[in-house]
C-alpha cells in the first residue's frame, strides 16, 4: 500500500491533486492525437488516483514485483487515464505521453501491456474480469496475499462473459479479487437504462456471491475508505459500485454521450484545462 491503511486529510489532498493531474494529462493526450473516449477517462480519474496513490501495493521501480497488487483496466478505451496515472506515479516519464496515439508509440488507444506498469491489454470489452479471476485464483491456490483489482465500465456489463466471471468468482470464494464498476450510466450510444438496463445492479452482484459497497466514485474519502480495507469479508469477492459522472471535471463534457467519441479542439482543451485549475 502507498502510505498506510489510514485515510488522512493529507492523503486525500494528494489523491485529489493527482486526479486533477490525470485529468489534465488525459485531456492533452486525447486532444493532441484527436482520439476518442475522454469522457470515459475523466469518469475514472478519481478512482485511479485513490488506487495508485493510496491503495495499490506497487513499486514503479520494480513493476513486476511478485508480491504487488495487480490492477487491470477492463474498459480499455479509457486508457489515457491509466497511462497518465502510471506516468505521474513514476513508471515512465510524463514526456512519453506525448507519443500517445502517434505512429510507432506503444501507447495505443486501448490499453496495452507493452507499456510499463500495465498488466493486461484490453479493448474488447468483457475480458478483464475473467483474466483477473485467473490471477486471483492463482494467488488463492498458492496462498499468496496480493490482491487483484479490475475496473469495469457499466456498459461492458452487457457482455455475458462478465456474468460468467462474476458467478465463478463468487463460487470460488475469491476474496482477494476486487471489481470496481464505473457506473456513470452512459454507454456508447445512449444511457445504460435505455440501452440494456442493469438495475437492480447491486442486488445482482450480491446474488452472484459478492460483498458490495456503493460509493460516490468522485468522493476520495469514500473511495479510499472502501478500497483501503479490502477484502471486506472472508470468502467473498468484493465489488465497489462507483456512481460516477461521465466527463467529470469538465462541465461541458459531463453527462454528454458525444464525449465518448469527440476530441476537444484547441479552444475546448484550453477551456477544459482552465476549469480544472479552478479550486
Amino acid at each position: 500500500m502507498y502510505g498506510n491503511g489510514l485515510v488522512t486529510d493529507r492523503d486525500m489532498a494528494r489523491t485529489r491533486l493527482m486526479a486533477r493531474r490525470v485529468r489534465q494529462l488525459s485531456l492533452e493526450m486525447v486532444a493532441r492525437s484527436q482520439a476518442s473516449h475522454i469522457g470515459s477517462a475523466l469518469s475514472i480519474a478519481d478512482i485511479l488516483a485513490v488506487l495508485y496513490w493510496k491503495v495499490l501495493n506497487i513499486d514503479p521501480a520494480v513493476p513486476n514485483l511478485p508480491s504487488r497488487d495487480r490492477f487491470i483496466l477492463s474498459k480499455g478505451h479509457a486508457c489515457t487515464a491509466v497511462y497518465a496515472a502510471l506516468a505521474a506515479r513514476g513508471f515512465f516519464p510524463e514526456t512519453d505521453l506525448l507519443t500517445y496515439g502517434q505512429d510507432g508509440s506503444p501507447l495505443m488507444n486501448h490499453i496495452s501491456h507493452k507499456v510499463r506498469g500495465v498488466e493486461f491489454s484490453t479493448g474488447s470489452l468483457g475480458h478483464g474480469l475473467s483474466f483477473g479471476v485467473g490471477k486471483a485464483l492463482a494467488a488463492q491456490r498458492r496462498g499468496e496475499g496480493w490482491r487483484t483489482f479490475v475496473l469495469l465500465s457499466d456498459g461492458e456489463l452487457d457482455e455475458g462473459s462478465n456474468w460468467e466471471a462474476l458467478m465463478f468468482a463468487g463460487h470460488q470464494r475469491l476474496d482477494h479479487l476486487v471489481a470496481i464498476v464505473d457506473y456513470n450510466k452512459l454507454q456508447s450510444l445512449a444511457s445504460v437504462e435505455s440501452t440494456l438496463g442493469l438495475e437492480p445492479l447491486a442486488d445482482k452482484f450480491r446474488a452472484f456471491g459478492w460483498t458490495l459497497r456503493e460509493v460516490d466514485g468522485h468522493d476520495h474519502t469514500a473511495l479510499a475508505g472502501a478500497l483501503a480495507s479490502v477484502p471486506w469479508e472472508p470468502a467473498r469477492p468484493s465489488l465497489l459500485l462507483c456512481h460516477t459522472t461521465k466527463g467529470r471535471g469538465v462541465a461541458f463534457m459531463e453527462n454528454k454521450v458525444e464525449w465518448h467519441y469527440r476530441s476537444p479542439n484547441a479552444g475546448q482543451l484550453a477551456q477544459a484545462l482552465a476549469e480544472l485549475e479552478q479550486p
Binding site: 475473467s130 483477473g132 479471476v133 492463482a138 455475458g160 462473459s161 466471471a165 458467478m167
Partner: peptide, 20 residues
C-alpha cells in the same frame, strides 16, 4: 470452470500470466 467457455479461457490466461 463450468459451462462457461469465455470465462474459462480468460481465467486460464490469467493463471498463465502468474506462471501456470
Amino acid at each position: 470452470a463450468g459451462v462457461a467457455e469465455q470465462n474459462m479461457m480468460g481465467l486460464a490466461a490469467g493463471m498463465a500470466s502468474e506462471g501456470y
